[in-house]
Design a protein around this nucleic acid. Structure first.
Lengths: 228, 228
DNA sequence: TAGAATAAGTGTAATTTTTACGTTTATTTA
DNA sequence: TAAATAAACGTAAAAATTACACTTATTCTA
């Protein structure tokens, strides 16, 4: 380390992950019971400290994988929260990340281990520090993200019905759309593949299953896509 | 500080400011000659370290005011850059901010003092560390921002002509628009006030001056505005 | 002082996108 | 085989976007 930097303060740097999942009806966020003082036992985002030898991004990935058992998860940085008094126990700045996972992938065992559980965005309990702000901001980001990025890639099973996809967008925007117009618009983007296979549990007729076509999407993205 | 946090590493935390201005034709970024080792004398964003007693946001405001002599500047957080080796001299994470200022407000004296100068976004010289990435990302953010926020508030003089406003948007998007359609769209938003006054230096006929109406804009924003 | 030169200001038709809205179809079960 | 269920599908009206060129106000100069 160069001498020039010696005079400056060093701060604790944490990461916190807002993890979203979709249960078919609602967008949910994964919260854990905080495992250390202060505020031990209260609801909290999953977080951890950044060590000197890892990048901030790697720290977030580590925390996420540790909690969910998943790697290759969609994750992006949300915002750095840097208020002096944001952590009751001392000066800690936190870089918040938000992640999208397929709710079913989440391992029940880990859920137990970390005393984690899914909470509807409309019924978030009291959470520690500034985590409420983090969650609020991440929802805004999710809504904004969903305009240009097919979040269904991450939040739905590989094969899904048009109804499921629509329910997802309705949950994200807390709004309802016309079925015909929704289908029309999504299909016009030409990023879905309709399978011959049908999902038969929800109706007698059965509904077609679709998959996202990542190649088509990437092609489209270059031109500046707008999903909704 | 609680004991629970004692084991964790503390890191140097910096802020870097990407400062945009508009000269009537081009979007420019303000760069300074770096004043400390390593890489002293090379082009750099204006930055500084976050002290233990100030918020990250306050640090960015301080750095910005110190360089430009301006307060009440539009500024928002861009991204936290946290790679282990991003700073050649040691582990420093940097929170980048981007700011929009009226180029003319910028004090010549400070420009001298910090060896600062404006650089066209298309001709950014070699800059230290990961500042090139920061600048690139901030341009993306500016473009995205300009869709929903009237950046002219910040980048143009209080009174401006339709031509100046169009030139600004053309510079941001590196694109050209039809004059009639541009005017039509902007006026339809109803956030401009046309003055009786005219700007006569650029033409014999003279062009009307406009001002932004912040009240009308705030009203519109609640409904979810789209500027372009 | 009339006309030439300059840049500003303005309108309309064609196309595309978005919205609103109800009926038909495939399948199962009684 | 009829009834019930949810899926699939199309069209007309409205709104937004695009493409496109002439008129106007003013000044300068001949």
């Amino acid at each position: 380390m160069t001498k020039a930097y010696n005079n400056h303060d060093r701060l604790l740097v944490a990461v916190d992950c807002i993890i979203f999942g979709f249960d078919g009806t609602e967008i949910k966020a994964l919260l854990v019971k905080r495992s250390l003082e202060p505020e031990k036992g209260k609801w909290s985002l999953m977080g951890g400290f950044v060590s000197a030898k890892e990048s901030v991004h790697d720290a977030a990935t580590r925390v996420l994988e540790n909690l969910t058992g998943l790697d290759n998860v969609y994750m992006e940085q949300l915002h750095c929260f840097g208020d002096v008094k944001r952590d009751a126990a001392g000066r800690v700045i936190s870089v918040a990340y938000f992640a999208l996972i397929k709710l079913d992938d989440y391992k029940e065992a880990l859920l137990q281990k970390h005393q984690a559980s899914w909470h509807s965005l409309h019924k978030i309990p009291a959470v520690v520090f500034d985590h409420k702000k983090m969650i609020a901001l991440s929802l805004e980001r999710l809504q904004q993200k969903a305009i240009a990025y097919p979040i269904g890639f991450e939040l739905l099973p590989t094969k899904f019905t048009m109804q499921q996809l629509q329910a997802l967008y309705e949950a994200v925007y807390n709004n309802s759309f016309d079925k015909r117009n929704f289908t029309k618009k999504i299909l016009s983007l030409n990023i879905l593949n309709r399978l011959t296979e049908k999902e038969k549990t929800t109706s007698r007729k059965g509904s077609f299953l679709y998959t996202f076509d990542k190649k088509k999407y990437n092609l489209l993205k270059k031109q500046g896509i707008k999903l909704l």
